[in-house]
């Protein structure tokens, strides 16, 4: 929900008040930078994305209709710019087929419950690195949905709106991404990390 202060600042910025636009950057900059960091996975690209997002927002502020919060509008701009960059670079390490495979595996393969495995609680940094690499390797169309829905906490309807996708498409991508990441974690525990558990 857009705050009254945000609405007033947007109105002023539309009329050419640069101070109001700077205040909007101050209020929303952290979220946009962090979104960029989660989508593009490095600080330099997150900085460039933040800059491009605000330039685009400044140049097109007249087209902001106020149907959504200003910050949601910014998220949409930032996500689309990030997606364009990811598509250009095509740096994903796994294919869409592998994501689907994780989905099929979950249907047929039995996976152990590793939530009680002490390694899950004590090897936090190792798991964090593993999950970061797994998120990193997600194809852009899955990563964008996963970041917006699961990491940023946007509801399915808003993610669909931001990415111009249908809600069922968002649900499918989110579900497959989750199963893929879960499978990566399961593999980690299967590969003998039980043995290291005792040592903490």
């Amino acid at each position: 929900m857009e705050s009254r202060q945000e609405t007033q600042l947007v109105e002023k910025a539309r009329k050419g008040d640069i101070g109001a636009f700077e205040e909007l950057i101050r209020m929303t900059g952290g979220r946009i930078y962090n979104l960029g960091f989660k989508l593009l996975r490095n600080k330099e690209d997150a900085s460039d994305l933040m800059q491009e997002t605000y330039i685009k927002a400044y140049e097109h502020i007249d087209s902001f209709r106020g149907n959504s919060a200003f910050s949601t509008w910014l998220y949409r701009i930032a996500t689309n710019l990030a997606l364009m960059k990811m598509r250009r670079e095509k740096n994903q390490k796994v294919s869409t087929d592998e994501i689907k495979e994780a989905y099929d595996n979950s249907m047929v393969k039995e996976m152990p419950d590793w939530t009680h495995n002490p390694a899950y609680h004590f090897k936090n940094q190792e798991l964090k690195d593993l999950l970061n690499r797994a998120i990193d390797s997600l194809p852009s169309k899955y990563r964008s949905v996963f970041v917006l829905h699961d990491m940023e906490g946007f509801p399915v309807s808003e993610v669909a709106d931001m990415l111009s996708l249908s809600e069922p498409a968002v649900k499918t991508r989110s579900h497959r991404s989750r199963l893929f990441l879960r499978e990566r974690l399961a593999d980690y525990f299967k590969q003998g990390h039980k043995a290291q558990v005792g040592g903490g």
């Binding site: 952290g30 899950y120 798991l127 964090k128 999950l131 998120i135 996963f146 699961d150 974690l185």
Partner: peptide, 23 residues
Amino acid sequence: ALLKTMKETISFTRRMSETEKVP
């Protein structure tokens, strides 16, 4: 097991998504 591990995968990724300060 599927329910528990899915729940944990989601909550772990949420917990690890630290906020970076904008330089």
